[in-house]
C-alpha cells in the first residue's frame, strides 16, 4: 500500500537526514518504525505527508508510492485526499478550537455533512472522554484527551493509512495501553492501515506485525514483531532487557562498532 524506495531527505540543501530508506506497509497491516531520538523517524513521516517544504527539507532521491501513485511532489492537501492522515508528534491539537471544531477541521476535505456528523459520533464512541468535552477549547484538555483528539481528528478524513508519530509521548503507562488498544481496534474494525513511529518499542511491538529499526537515517534491522522481540540487540537497546543484566560500557562500545561495520 505504501512503499518507500531508497528515500533520501536533505534539509536546507546540506543536512542529510534520511540516507536511502526503504520500507513497505502492506494494506491492513500495522507496521512500526522504531528508533532513538534524532534517528529520522519524524522526518520519514513528514516526507510521506508532504510536509518537508515548510521546514526547507526535500526528498532528493528515491520515491514514495501510495496505492500506485507517486506522492513525492504532492502537496499535503493532495496527500490527505489520497487517504493518508498523520497524527503529529506531541498531539498538536488546535488549542483555540473546541474539541468538536478540531474534529470538523479534520474533515476539511469532505463535503457530506451528514456523513461527517456520523463520523464525529463514531470518534466519540471510540473516545468517550471527548464527548463530554466537545465544547471545551482543546488547549484545556488533558494530555491523554489531546492524544485521543489528535487521533480522532486524523480519522475524520477517512484515511486508508494513518501515520502515528509517538502517540505514547508524555502519557501515563495506563493511558498508553488504552491508546494502543484503540489503535489496534481501529485497524481491525475501521480497516485503517497503520504506520506507527515509536520510542516505546515494547509497546509498539505488541500491536505491530512488522517492524523496522532506524538509526542515523538508515534501516539497520527489520523483521516480524516476534523476531524483533527476540533479537538480542533489540532487547538490549530498545526494550531495555537483557539476560545477563546490565552490560559493561566496554561491551556497548563493542556492539556499536559491530553495528557500524554491518552497515
Amino acid at each position: 500500500m505504501l512503499t518507500l524506495q531508497n528515500v533520501e531527505v536533505i534539509y536546507s540543501k546540506v543536512i542529510l537526514v534520511i540516507k536511502g530508506l526503504t520500507l513497505e506497509v502492506p494494506e491492513g497491516g500495522i507496521v512500526t518504525l522504531l528508533g532513538a531520538n534524532g534517528a529520522g523517524k519524524s522526518t520519514t513521516l513528514k516526507a510521506i505527508a508532504g510536509l518537508l517544504g515548510a521546514e526547507r527539507g526535500e526528498i532528493t532521491k528515491g520515491g514514495i508510492g501510495f496505492n500506485g501513485h507517486r506522492i513525492n511532489d504532492r502537496t499535503p492537501a493532495e496527500i490527505v485526499k489520497l487517504g493518508i492522515a498523520l497524527v503529529p508528534e506531541g498531539r498538536q491539537v488546535f488549542e483555540h478550537l473546541t474539541t468538536e471544531e478540531n474534529l470538523l477541521a479534520g474533515a476539511h476535505t469532505r463535503r457530506n455533512l451528514a456523513e461527517i456528523r456520523r463520523d464525529i459520533d463514531l470518534v466519540y464512541q471510540y473516545f468517550p472522554p471527548l464527548a463530554a468535552r466537545r465544547r471545551i477549547e482543546a488547549g484545556y484538555l488533558s494530555g491523554g484527551e489531546q492524544q485521543m483528539l489528535a487521533i480522532g481528528r486524523a480519522l475524520m478524513s477517512r484515511p486508508k493509512l494513518m501515520l502515528l508519530d509517538e502517540p505514547s509521548l508524555g502519557l501515563a503507562p495506563m493511558l498508553v495501553q488504552e491508546i494502543f488498544d484503540i489503535i489496534a481496534q481501529l485497524n481491525q474494525e475501521e480497516k485503517v492501515t497503520v504506520l506507527l513511529v515509536e520510542q516505546n518499542a515494547a509497546m509498539a511491538l505488541t500491536i505491530a506485525r512488522y517492524g523496522y529499526i532506524l538509526e542515523n537515517g538508515r534501516i539497520v534491522l527489520d523483521g516480524t514483531a516476534a523476531s524483533l522481540r527476540d533479537n538480542e540487540d533489540v532487547k538490549e537497546f530498545y526494550l531495555g532487557l537483557s539476560e545477563v543484566g546490565r552490560r559493561s560500557y566496554r561491551d556497548v562500545k563493542h556492539y556499536r562498532r559491530r553495528k557500524r561495520w554491518l552497515l
Binding site: V80, Q92, E95, H108
Partner: peptide, 20 residues
C-alpha cells in the same frame, strides 16, 4: 471559519488536515 482559525492556530497541522 473553522479552517481559517485552524490555520491561525497551527499552520503545519492545518496542512495535515488537507487545508490548503
Amino acid at each position: 471559519g473553522i479552517a481559517l482559525r485552524a490555520v491561525a492556530d497551527n499552520q503545519t497541522v492545518a496542512q495535515l488536515m488537507g487545508i490548503d
